[in-house]
């Protein structure tokens, strides 16, 4: 097991080097002179040269890359062009908001998607099954930013049940410790803040959860159906087990394996979906930060945030692979 984990981690090294090269090359993808693109056409020659030197763009390409990697290892992702604060520092303040939103969205996706897939498989071709499958298909076909807007219109503007933007009403005062507001309000024992931040969380996380939810439901159903056709299920039924026990204790255990992989892959969809969702709901996380940086051509932020998301994506998939090996001994042997 340990050797599997070590092999898996070692295989990540070339991928991570590749990721860092691609993100490093971003700045060179800017058409024309990147320094002029950053400072604007009216910048003075001295300013241009100074910026070029500060960004290291006056050195050979390979040297620039090694400098870049060296800085990353020291936690230095450069400085924001607009605010001049270190990118890593801004990132640390934005990240908990996105993590809270993504985790909550994944929980919703699992709570709804898993049972929906299981019931659909158990009652194959029933009205429930058809409804869930049509719903899932619509779910993967919907632009989430549009769904978010429609939810916001219905529940915050029209019905006025839930707030539209932000993480917490400005009237509520909450000491920030972890910047996970649900956790912070619990730590402070502030129920009003807890309810308020939960209300703010519902719409964006619902919008963000649709695609993973739909894919989890489809995947659970198809994997479960595949398992239900296996010999061991016939044996289980033949020895007189209840159908619910055949389904939940025998088939589901094996059917869940591919679903675990999907959860890993969908983390990527959640993190890129966060750019759209956070923009709509003014959620002060990494996604909205990337959006603002794109608008103001703050390239170091785009670079740093892309690197962060790719790293998280790679790490989550590493964890998924390792958990997969725990669940399925065959993987370890391969």
């Amino acid at each position: 097991m340990l050797s599997y984990i070590i092999r898996r981690i070692l295989s990540l090294i070339p991928v991570l080097i590749g990721v860092s090269i691609i993100v490093f090359l971003f700045i060179h993808m800017i058409p024309g002179d990147p320094v002029l693109a950053i400072l604007g056409e009216r910048a003075t020659v001295e300013n241009v040269e100074r910026a070029r030197h500060e960004l290291g763009l006056d050195r050979p390409l390979w040297e620039q890359y090694f400098l870049y990697v060296n800085k990353i290892f020291h936690g230095d992702l450069g400085r924001s062009i607009r605010s001049n604060t270190p990118v890593s520092q801004e990132m640390a303040t934005k990240f908990p908001a996105t993590a809270e939103l993504s985790i909550f969205a994944m929980i919703i996706a699992l709570i709804v998607g898993l049972p929906a897939g299981i019931i659909s498989a158990a009652k194959r071709n029933s009205i429930f099954d058809t409804t869930v499958m049509i719903g899932a298909l619509i779910g993967v076909s919907m632009p989430i930013f549009w769904l978010g807007l429609m939810l916001a219109f219905l529940f915050s503007i029209f019905l006025k049940w839930l707030p539209f933007s932000g993480r917490l009403d400005s009237t509520i005062i909450l000491p920030i410790q972890t910047n996970f507001l649900l956790l912070d309000s619990l730590l402070a024992g502030n129920w009003e803040a807890f309810k308020n931040s939960l209300a703010h969380l519902i719409l964006p996380s619902l919008a963000l959860s649709t695609i993973p939810m739909a894919i989890i439901a489809r995947m659970t159903r198809s994997c479960l159906l595949e398992e239900l056709g296996q010999d061991y299920i016939r044996t289980a039924r033949a020895k007189g087990l209840k159908e619910s026990s055949v389904l939940l204790r025998h088939a589901l255990k094996n059917a869940l394996l591919p679903v675990v992989t999907i959860i890993g892959l969908e983390t990527g969809a959640l993190l890129s979906g966060a750019i759209l969702t956070e923009t709509i709901f003014s959620w002060p996380g990494i996604g909205r930060w990337i959006y603002m940086a794109i608008q103001s051509r703050d390239y170091p932020i785009v670079q740093g945030a892309t690197l962060l998301i790719a790293l998280i994506y790679v790490l989550v998939n590493l964890l998924v692979d390792i958990s997969y090996a725990f669940l399925d001994p065959r993987i370890r042997v391969q």
Partner: peptide, 22 residues
């Protein structure tokens, strides 16, 4: 390996980053 590296980025994010730069 090159393909693996590209798959290490969520597709939509990579597309957004490329257009943001280009």
């Amino acid at each position: 390996r090159l393909m693996d590296i590209m798959l290490a980025f969520p597709a939509t994010l990579l597309a957004i980053a490329i257009v943001a730069m280009r």
